[in-house]
Design a protein around this nucleic acid. Structure first.
Lengths: 240, 240
DNA sequence: ATTGGCTGAGTGGCTGAGCCAATCTGAGCG
DNA sequence: CGCTCAGATTGGCTCAGCCACTCAGCCAAT
């Protein structure tokens, strides 16, 4: 899909421009925690925009915890700058260049599988089996088993009962979903993937943490391999 | 500075109330990704506030990526709800109850060590050795080697050259630092920790990914064990 | 039947003036 | 010197209005 003709960058938003100016102003002026920003009226006048727009920008800084607004007292910096710690999300965006994501996935899911083997409840096992059944059924009908695959990994994550690891997984959820689709499109891949899932489930059922971890590692690595063979650094993904 | 009684709900902020109402509205109405919110004028009228306040709330939702505003077209949900995915940060806060953090640490650092063995540059090796020297020196002088320990793990993370995994590590940095201090206070612990670090470094120097991963896993697990023995679920940590 | 341009209603973007409420400042008083 | 209190400052919020963009529907040209 030749997407040569751009998504047409959308950012007229005035408050975003105000935000940029404010960040620049604070950076250049070397303002530090506790320093006071100019008043809203002053900013509005100097930037040549309405106070409402300045206010919108300040509200953004406020919810990001970068600034403290005191009614009648002024607006003060909470930290030294106005830059937000680069959100993992954006990193994920840039690093959709999959290799990084797959490394992270291996690190997280290997441990998740181990924990799942040690902590799974009966409901967890039911969910895992249901996911596999669904995948098998779909593949039997000529499908790729994508939804079952997704459900299985989600069930493993749930069975590990680790909110922190689960939170990390959520952060790379989207790129993983994409890689899943491409991977399962490979010839004979759905069947092999199903077999690997069965191995993981068997280890989890047996309460074999090491085995589950090893099985999951093999699975994730084979996905990565398949995916990387197809990887063309020039073509970005097609969809939304 | 006795600020014991200070919190006193500081939230007159109108736009925050609007935010709450919007979230409630979306939750109750079961609105889903792609659904459209009422118009700004409509919301302002129904909530009995000005359009400017509604706008401020919508700007917040926009920067949080929960909503897409189309000029002239309306405001649409990006996800199913309006609730911010619980920020990892807050999770870390609550989960300073360490076990979860240590699980995550094992998952991440094991992989980081493996990658470090495969990708380390000469500078990375220099940094790793310097960290170890510092730790040895400090311990030799009767210290705990805390700073050297920190530097070593930071150097491993750097040597892995994975921005995503590094970002995850940053998110659990603080609780790890705390656990490090407590761990190294155990009798004979600094010396053993140093030996474990040496084993990790040796594997990384040799380019032995599996070995480095294994050595790191042993190290992290021994830290976890030591830490958990000390764990008293009733006493929260002292500090900030 | 399809395509492309046009129009009008609806909706978000932004402004400017203005009032209210919290805070700060300083002059004046005890 | 310290306290008080009124006026100045500054943020909170509203109102009314105009502009820009979108979308649906209509119509002419193809």
């Amino acid at each position: 899909m030749n997407d040569a003709l751009r998504p047409m960058a959308a950012r007229p938003r005035l408050y975003e421009q105000v935000l940029d100016r404010l960040r620049a102003y604070v950076a250049e002026g070397g303002l530090r925690a506790g320093d006071r920003l100019p008043t809203e009226r002053d900013l509005a006048a100097r930037l040549g925009v309405s106070r409402a727009s300045v206010k919108q920008a300040i509200v953004v800084l406020e919810v990001q915890g970068l600034v403290e607004v005191r009614h009648g007292g002024g607006t003060y910096l909470v930290r030294d700058g106005l830059d937000v710690a680069e959100p993992v999300e954006r990193l994920v965006e840039r690093k959709k260049r999959l290799p990084d994501v797959l490394e992270a996935r291996e690190a997280l899911e290997t441990k998740l599988a181990e924990l799942a083997a040690e902590r799974r409840t009966d409901e967890n096992l039911t969910a895992l089996r249901a996911a596999l059944d669904r995948m098998a059924e779909d593949i039997g009908a000529g499908g790729l088993g994508i939804e079952g695959d997704r459900l299985f990994h989600a069930a493993v994550t749930a069975a590990a009962h680790s909110t922190l690891l689960a939170a990390f997984m959520r952060e790379i959820d989207e790129p993983i979903a994409e890689s899943r689709t491409e991977s399962l499109r490979q010839p004979r891949r759905p069947g092999r993937s199903l077999a690997q899932h069965r191995a993981i489930l068997t280890a989890i059922e047996a309460g074999d943490g090491r085995g589950a971890a090893a099985a999951m590692r093999r699975h994730v690595r084979s996905v990565a391999k398949v995916r990387l063979l197809e990887w063309d650094p020039d073509s970005s993904s097609t969809g939304t």
